[in-house]
Design a protein around this nucleic acid. Structure first.
Lengths: 249, 249
DNA sequence: TTATCTCTGTGTGCCAGCGTACAGACCTCG
DNA sequence: CGAGGTCTGTACGCTGGCACACAGAGATAA
């Protein structure tokens, strides 16, 4: 089954599961095409499904009184949307919207909970992922408090590129302003600065990363910090350890 | 045993457990006196114990490169310090320090994990608490991004008062600046403004809340929002529901 | 009492980001 | 081809918080 083979290597959370449990989950997933800026979940709404992104990414946005808001988390193929379910809560505190279009696997919430009960491996994976997500939210909090727009924008672009698995993707200045919690004008300034430095190029929403290293230099240290956290707790090395653990048990 | 009777009504997380499991946990806890500004855990350090605050409170602080930092969470008698353990991780991403002095119950991490495995009720409680904590971190992120110092300070004072269960507590401007991620001077300005409005009074670190309602009006909406989240997911009403659930089962 | 340390208050210049407004370039569709 | 919508660039005055510096008042200990 080529499809299943394809996807089980692309969502890393699923990929880290023992084959049997992974197949059981995949059998209950349906592939869905996520479109840019689609809203998957509103704050306070029931969570009906969980999503495992493949090459798409999903933003977690905290609403605030008024029209302001702030992205606090970003979910790509390293994770899952629908964490509240694993915590025994059936609603989400966040607005979840598609940040870069692409493929994801969707699974019914009740079915997911049923599988979660059966699979200790899945519990373990999700727990670790939750730890990383919390770290990310906290890091983003400090970042958005202290760092200037240009550095935050650079970080955002890098994180999105990592999750889109592509050098170019679609995103407008208005959308970025919404995510970063700044004015659109602020994004325009920062973006044109990055473009002048030949780190990126864009035209009416189509952004291309030209110089990844340069962009990393322009980004705040949060990008590196976050990446290290991911590597450390969800990365390849850990997977090796995990295999060893299994071998010993 | 008067001590055990006293404490089991004061940490709400423990109080929500069935008597048998609560007693088992309490038997393995030791009471500790937490002193102002004591550091319980540094980022990246091993988590050796979990803490259930009684009338003390503990801050979770995200460190950033340089000397800057930001408080992202606050733990009082509604919760527990040591969440990473429940996620299968033995270190914390945060600096945990005592924000208001008082009593807490401390338990060995390994013993806690052992009990956690045995007690479905404890798992349930901690899961819900974790959900609330995540909401709080995200709320704080947006708050510190958008709201002015004076409103944030008011919020902070209210949250601390709630957890200290007392109208006055000890905290200096420097400490507050550290928590709020601003300059000490900024705190001095905001605090003297609140004092001019007769909402609080302070002298060399001893703060007293004079007008709680006024302070709530001066605080950003985040305070109310957060309180509602707590009530909703950890509060009394939920406890009632919980009792009903038990009765039906 | 005196020296020292801690805590709080004030002042000055600076800057990033804000709110608002407007204009030009580009795209799409009738 | 023209009309209307979308995306991006620029300008202007404003303000909250920044860095830095200094001063005075209260606490503490010799």
């Amino acid at each position: 089954m080529p499809f299943s083979h394809y996807v089980n290597t692309t969502n890393r959370l699923l990929a880290a599961l023992p084959a049997k449990e992974r197949e059981r989950l995949l059998a209950q997933c349906e592939p869905v095409e996520l479109r840019f800026a689609d809203i998957i979940n509103k704050p306070g709404e029931f969570v009906l499904h969980v999503y495992f992104p493949i090459n798409s990414s999903i933003s977690l946005v905290t609403p605030l009184e008024g029209s302001t808001s702030l992205e606090v988390g970003l979910i790509g193929n390293e994770g899952m949307l629908g964490i509240p379910l694993t915590l025994g809560v059936d609603e989400s505190p966040f607005l979840a919207l598609v940040q870069s279009a692409g493929l994801a696997l969707r699974m019914n919430g009740a079915a997911f909970l049923h599988e979660l009960k059966r699979s200790a491996a899945l519990q373990r994976e999700l727990n670790r992922y939750l730890y990383v997500l919390i770290s990310q939210i906290a890091q983003t909090a400090a970042c958005s408090r202290f760092h200037v727009v240009e550095a935050r924008l650079a970080r955002w672009l890098l994180m999105t590129q990592d999750r889109a698995h592509s050098d170019s993707f679609h995103v407008t200045h208005v959308f970025l302003a919404y995510m970063l919690g700044v004015r659109r004008v602020g994004v325009t300034k920062a973006a044109s600065s990055l473009q002048r430095q030949k780190l990126i190029s864009y035209h009416r929403g189509d952004v291309t990363i030209l110089d990844r290293n340069g962009l990393e230099a322009a980004a705040c240290p949060c990008y590196r910090a976050e990446k290290e956290t991911y590597e450390r707790f969800l990365g390849y090395n850990r997977a090796i350890h995990h295999q060893n653990d299994l071998a010993h048990s």
